[in-house]
Design a protein around this nucleic acid. Structure first.
Lengths: 343, 343
DNA sequence: GACAGGTGGTGAACCGCTTCACTGATGCGC
DNA sequence: GCGCATCAGTGAAGCGGTTCACCACCTGTC
């Protein structure tokens, strides 16, 4: 058997062309050497089938061209599709995304962020589980950090695309209140260890003014988990008449639970989602939700990331972008009809 | 400003402990040196906050501990959730998954596979866009290759988990035929360049025997694209009474199109999906589909991958596993009622 | 004809780890 | 007391690039 041929290296091209490997390195990157030498080198490289070694390059230069994409939880269907879209967007500008999943766990998040940094990603795009965690400052000082969703305190991130959750949550609560709902549950997936997210603060601030009692409940993103949490909520005392889910994934669980209990939506139970996954419009009734402009989001994140990577001239362009949710009012919210016991 | 402190390296630990860096390297990996020295070294490493450099390690040893996960198309919602689940499964055994998206494009697939190999993944798990492509043999000879879905010809893969698509497609067609459907369209997402997938062969083989005419139609995975393809299909001549979608993502598009056209499911149109994404049961009516046992799939793939990585003793265990779909008969398939013109 | 300055390169250090070949000391049997 | 393993550890050579310092040569100029 012919022994596995070694992959060609700079040195091989150097021997082919009679140059030094340093010259070849420069030539392939279009530096320092006259154009005709570059041509000669490129031709030889093609002939030998040379493709650089990204690992060696990374060790020497500290750069890879890759971008880390750290998702808070890939169990959330919206984050799944956003991650996929961002991956495609980055591929479109010649960069490979390394997608990893913090599984809604701040410790994992820190660990994975450090791992990505160690792998020499040129930038790290994060959808933070815990925006207030201390590790972000440490990460930001070692890599270009771009955050999506909640802003990081202290301007840690090199750039951020912030969701105006406050406004959207307030709007949602107002709409539920207008429809006559007084007992409302806000469903979130946040781990207990990360207190007072912006969205939750809003609940406490706006709720009283609207005359509503809003309870907070935590549920996992996966359908089975969300469903059983919703079942407990709907069979417990003081069943809410309206539920605001801080992610569509959670709303799906409420749909499933309502179906299981024979509750009609929106007659017996009003539901609002958040993020507006494309499928939400397909449910019966279609889920009311708050949509972030995804195409714009992806384009903005990609551009900001590229800018930040190339920014020796830090501070020229705006590094912060606030996204406003577009309400999608659909059939899952209605006026309170049946007040009282279940069934 | 205190200059950014260099991260500790083996040499730093060597100086701390009075050993050579070679000894430290061995000690940290629990090799060659007596246990008490290992202890001493580990203690010093912790004290200095040493975390190895994966890039340097990769260059020297050719291994990283990472596993590449090459998805055919992350636009498919089922692949999204499978990728997320596999990522978690691999993380659970201490390996980071690098998830990348071939965007349903064989060229991208080849390119990304090579990139992952260059990044020294210990194994590459692929859900092939084009199982018959020539590049798989080349990939397999450079890395441990595990395929999911369609088998690779010539036993290229070190291990594979194969979906028994034939049986499931045949079953689906039979069920539609039994319900009285004669004009059936099979919706697939396969690029035109990859002819005769197993599933399509079945259509041609089984169709005639059942007395049905089955047309093949290609549509993209994303909801908007699938919807407009479905719209064309449903407004064209010879509108089918039954549609078999080779992925739930495509079925969602048919649901959307049917709703837009005012067609009732299943009265005017029967729909079958494939893969059974969790959300499919939540639609109205719930989508009939063919479910692959995902937990088992993930566990199997993870185990086979680990085995294959450690396999110097190649061939001890079974390297091939065939998964059989579990039919989920739900409300989206019914007997043919309204034959004739639309509306 | 000496010198400055630009051109077209070269050699070697370096990135941080793994691994091979080798050395000194120690233990052991007889 | 000798030969031979075994043990604990060392030095240096990779891995395949990038980058710095430097050099030889040519050209133009005063």
């Amino acid at each position: 058997m012919p022994e596995r041929r070694r992959r060609p290296t700079l040195k091989d091209i150097a021997e082919e062309t009679g140059l030094s490997s340093a010259a070849v390195s420069y030539a392939l990157r279009g530096l320092q050497v006259p154009v005709q030498t570059q041509e000669r080198v490129r031709e030889a490289a093609d002939r030998l089938g040379y493709t650089g070694d990204p690992i060696a390059r990374a060790l020497a230069s500290g750069r890879t061209g890759n971008v880390g994409l750290l998702c808070g939880s890939l169990e959330d269907i919206w984050q799944q599709s956003l991650a996929a879209a961002l991956g495609r967007g980055l591929l479109g500008v010649g960069r490979q995304a390394l997608i990893v999943d913090a599984t809604n766990n701040p410790d994992q998040e820190r660990k994975l962020a450090m791992q990505l940094v160690d792998q020499r990603v040129d930038a790290l795009i994060a959808m933070p589980v815990d925006p207030k965690a201390a590790h972000w400052a440490a990460v930001a000082e070692r890599v270009v950090l771009v955050s999506i969703g909640d802003g990081l305190p202290g301007a840690a991130a090199a750039a951020e695309v912030v969701f105006d959750n406050e406004a959207a949550v307030a709007d949602a609560l107002r709409e539920l209140a207008n429809a006559g709902h007084r007992r409302i549950t806000v469903l979130t997936s946040v781990a207990a260890s990360t207190p007072d997210r912006p969205a939750e603060a809003v609940v406490h601030r706006v709720g009283p003014a609207l005359g509503i009692t809003a309870g907070l409940l935590t549920a996992p993103y996966d359908l089975a988990g969300a469903t059983s949490a919703a079942l407990r909520m709907l069979t417990g005392p003081d069943r809410p008449t309206g539920v605001l889910c801080l992610s569509d994934s959670l709303a799906y669980g409420v749909y499933a639970a309502a179906r299981e209990l024979g509750l009609r939506i929106p007659d017996d139970l009003s539901i609002m989602g958040f993020d507006d996954h494309p499928l939400s419009a397909l449910l019966t009734p279609p889920l009311s939700s708050y949509r972030w402009p995804v195409e714009e989001l992806v384009a903005t994140v990609v551009r900001l990331t590229l800018d930040a990577i190339e920014a020796t001239d830090s501070g020229s362009r705006s590094r912060r972008r606030v996204l406003v949710a577009q309400p999608r009012r659909r059939g899952s919210v209605g006026a309170v009809r049946s007040v009282g016991a279940l069934g």
